[in-house]
Computed example of a mutant assay.
Amino acid sequence: MPLSRRALLTTTGATALFTALPTNAQAHAKPRAPRNTIRQIPLQGAVNVRDLGGYRTYDGGRVRHGLAYRGDHLGKLTAADLTTLAGIGLGTVVDLRIPLEVQYDGADRLPAGTVPVARPITDNGLFGQLMAAIGSRDPVRQEEMLGGGRAAAFMSDVYRTFVTDAANRAAFAANLRDLGDPARGPVLFHCTSGKDRTGWTGYLLLTLLGVPTASARDDYLASNTIRAAYDAKVREGLKQGGLMQNPDLIVPLQEVRPEYLDTALDQVRASYGSLLRYCSVGLGLEFRDVLALRERLVLGA
């Protein structure tokens, strides 16, 4: 039910706001056709950087442009990319990668004046497993590690940790609080590919802002379209370089899939009963945190 701005300022409004979070049935509903244009930031050294603004909310508002960004790693940015990011006035960049990923791809390159925040969220060993499989150059070992649905199952395990791991929950909560803090300036949060840890953060943010579930899911799934050409080149490079005979084994690790998101939502239901309780109990978000997000990031109501 649409929430008025006045309702948000009352205790009753607090309850209404949190109960506006989707039910499990809504969360698992088939996504509708996208109604929002993805605002990708064109960069030479990163593929999946985009502005989360523009989404309509249940109560007639719209997510503000230029304040919340999501992305993949920024370790390969060019001088031109730095100029582009300087132009959008980034205040804070939150890096969700673990140290092994940073070591492999390099620390973020950021415009002058941007505050870096290292906030690693575990990938449940995914990056190390992937590097070990590729580095072995052994097609039999690679099949044993990644074939037969094992890669997709590993991804589902990663998504469960978004709910079950206390340190991960604390990191997601901190991300959301930063996004609601005007002192942070425009915030960009990212991991390596900008699709899983970043995708869950984006899904939670849009949902808490009152964006319909279908649109939040569309944003999550958009990484597949945005990353498709780049990921195909990676697979071709692995094959041409003699590292993998069957690089399609890594497709489940490169993609986001509805079942991955649903795995996290199923774990939310199993652990907390609802997304409401996951946010309030699991993440420890209070009404003032959610209100700060909406006051800062939602235009009109």
Score class of each variant (00 low, 15 high):
residue 48 N to W: 01
residue 28 H to W: 10
residue 194 G to I: 12
residue 278 Y to E: 10
residue 296 R to W: 12
residue 89 G to V: 03
residue 1 M to S: 09
residue 195 K to E: 07
residue 186 P to C: 14
residue 131 M to K: 15
residue 294 R to S: 09
residue 250 I to F: 00
residue 19 T to I: 02
residue 98 I to A: 05
residue 234 V to H: 04
residue 226 I to M: 13
residue 91 G to V: 02
residue 28 H to L: 09
residue 262 D to N: 15
residue 19 T to D: 15
residue 131 M to L: 14
residue 229 A to I: 00
residue 159 Y to L: 07
residue 148 G to L: 11
residue 192 T to C: 01
residue 254 Q to P: 02
residue 159 Y to M: 06
residue 242 G to P: 05
residue 16 A to S: 13
residue 98 I to G: 10
residue 299 L to A: 13
residue 297 L to Y: 12
residue 109 R to D: 10
residue 89 G to S: 12
residue 175 N to C: 15
residue 248 D to R: 15
residue 153 A to D: 12
residue 187 V to M: 11
residue 59 D to P: 00
residue 115 V to M: 04
residue 250 I to N: 01
residue 301 A to Q: 11
residue 282 G to C: 11
residue 139 P to L: 03
residue 301 A to D: 14
residue 13 G to H: 07
residue 56 R to L: 05
residue 231 D to P: 05
residue 142 Q to K: 07
residue 143 E to G: 15
residue 246 N to D: 10
residue 3 L to M: 08
residue 190 H to I: 02
residue 298 V to F: 14
residue 150 R to E: 13
residue 60 G to P: 00
residue 263 T to I: 09
residue 31 P to W: 07
residue 123 D to Y: 08
residue 258 P to S: 11
residue 110 L to M: 10
residue 55 Y to I: 09
residue 48 N to R: 04
residue 299 L to Y: 14
residue 127 F to H: 14
residue 180 G to I: 08
residue 54 G to S: 08
residue 172 F to T: 02
residue 42 P to F: 05
residue 235 R to G: 04
residue 120 P to R: 09
residue 114 T to G: 10
residue 34 P to W: 10
residue 275 L to W: 05
residue 29 A to C: 04
residue 224 N to L: 08
residue 134 I to E: 03
residue 35 R to S: 06
residue 26 Q to A: 13
residue 159 Y to S: 08
residue 223 S to K: 00
residue 174 A to E: 11
residue 45 G to Y: 01
residue 9 L to V: 01
residue 72 D to I: 03
residue 72 D to M: 13
residue 246 N to S: 15
residue 206 L to T: 10
residue 109 R to H: 13
residue 117 V to K: 03
residue 112 A to R: 08
residue 192 T to R: 13
residue 291 L to Y: 12
residue 97 R to K: 03
residue 262 D to K: 06
residue 27 A to H: 09
residue 147 G to T: 02
residue 115 V to K: 14
residue 262 D to F: 06
residue 112 A to T: 11
residue 1 M to G: 12
residue 70 R to H: 05
residue 51 D to R: 06
residue 268 V to I: 13
residue 90 L to K: 02
residue 252 P to F: 05
residue 19 T to S: 13
